[in-house]
Design a protein around this nucleic acid. Structure first.
Lengths: 201, 201
DNA sequence: AATCTATCGCAACTTCAAGTTGCGATACCG
DNA sequence: CGGTATCGCAACTTGAAGTTGCGATAGATT
């Protein structure tokens, strides 16, 4: 019990600045892309001076990591439709949806195709993926318990197979991605799972 | 029949310079990565002056595109083992192998995770993928003709499904990629194909 | 309402790589 | 052995990253 105010003045005008800069960062990411994103541009869009940005964030990378982390800090609900087919479809469609908005595309590009050599951002991307995958694993486990899928089916492998075609199109081929893509991914994954292709030999 | 020498002096010492700069570009890509790749660094490693590089290539992007294109201009043999299972396995293993060398990783990173906002490089990456996919389509068609796979099976979808897990691990999750990954991808793809999951509804 | 203090705006600065230019030197081709 | 294209070299411009010191401002405290 040193002082009655452990936080001297953590929230003042600073909160608004922080928010404005985050929003401006994502907006610039959408407009210009990662390579052409400049701190001065972000600052101007946020109605803030460049030095203010550098006082709150160490460098451009820290700013990016912070903005992306905040944008990704949304809880994605895990479906439970009662059948594995419905759940896989819902998961795939949810994945597609999160990357079809302009902001979603920009965030994806920044995480996986923009930040080469920036370990923190790449790590953040991998972490987000792993986290969502872990949270979705019960979908597969429930299906195994219901007897829909063979015992021993590896949840992680199933979900990676579900997500892989979506990321392939987004990052590699550049093909359009829509609900059809999601449904086809679910169809393929379900067929393979039913055939026991995800049970370790 | 204007002049007996349509090419005044296209190949002189220039060829050696070109080769040296290409090699140095890939080497720097491996050592420093795309973000930290500087034209001056490439020039020094190639034993050449910076201006010489700029005389042959318009800018850093052109240099990258050229070096990557040359590195990727190798004909990948299309397998024909007699069974679709053997062919899929061979294709997947070949894909894995091409990205497990240090140079392979560096090239992959430059194409898909390094050159955001550099349309030419991204387009080159997509083009390479599409080309190899087209050249591998006969593998699926032969399997359909042999009666191994259902009639109407979409070759492109099969091959994308085969490649997708490999790219997912390389670009998104960062999981290790080896023959096991390739074999599992082939296993899953084959199971789905046998179940008719690649026949348009 | 007056004041105190952390935060912000501003301008000037350093550093570094991209890309350019002009000129002198050199290596290749005939 | 001479001619010409190519290369080395040095000096330059440009633009963004990141830094520093000082004066101005807004928020919380009394």
């Amino acid at each position: 019990m040193e002082s009655p105010r452990p936080a001297p003045r953590p929230v003042g005008r600073g909160a608004k600045v922080r928010e404005a800069v985050h929003a401006a960062t994502l907006a610039e990411l959408v407009d210009k892309g990662y390579a052409a994103l400049t701190v001065e541009g972000v600052a101007q869009r946020a109605g803030v001076h460049k030095t203010t940005v550098y006082r709150r964030w160490k460098d451009r990378e820290s700013l990016l990591v912070d903005a992306l982390a905040e944008h990704l800090a949304v809880d994605v609900p895990v479906p439970d439709t009662g059948t594995i087919e419905g759940d896989l479809r819902a998961l795939a469609r949810s994945l597609v949806q999160s990357y079809t908005s302009p902001t979603g595309r920009a965030v994806l590009a920044a995480m996986f195709t923009g930040a080469a050599g920036l370990p923190e951002i790449a790590a953040a991307g991998g972490h987000v993926f792993r986290d969502r995958l872990t949270r979705a694993e019960p979908v597969v486990r429930r299906a195994v318990e219901r007897g829909e899928l063979p015992a021993g089916t590896d949840p992680g492998e199933v979900l990676k197979t579900l997500a892989a075609p979506v990321y392939l199109r987004l990052l590699v081929t550049g093909d359009p991605v829509d609900e059809t893509t999601a449904d086809q991914a679910a169809r393929v994954t379900l067929a393979a799972a039913l055939a026991g292709a995800f049970v370790p030999r």
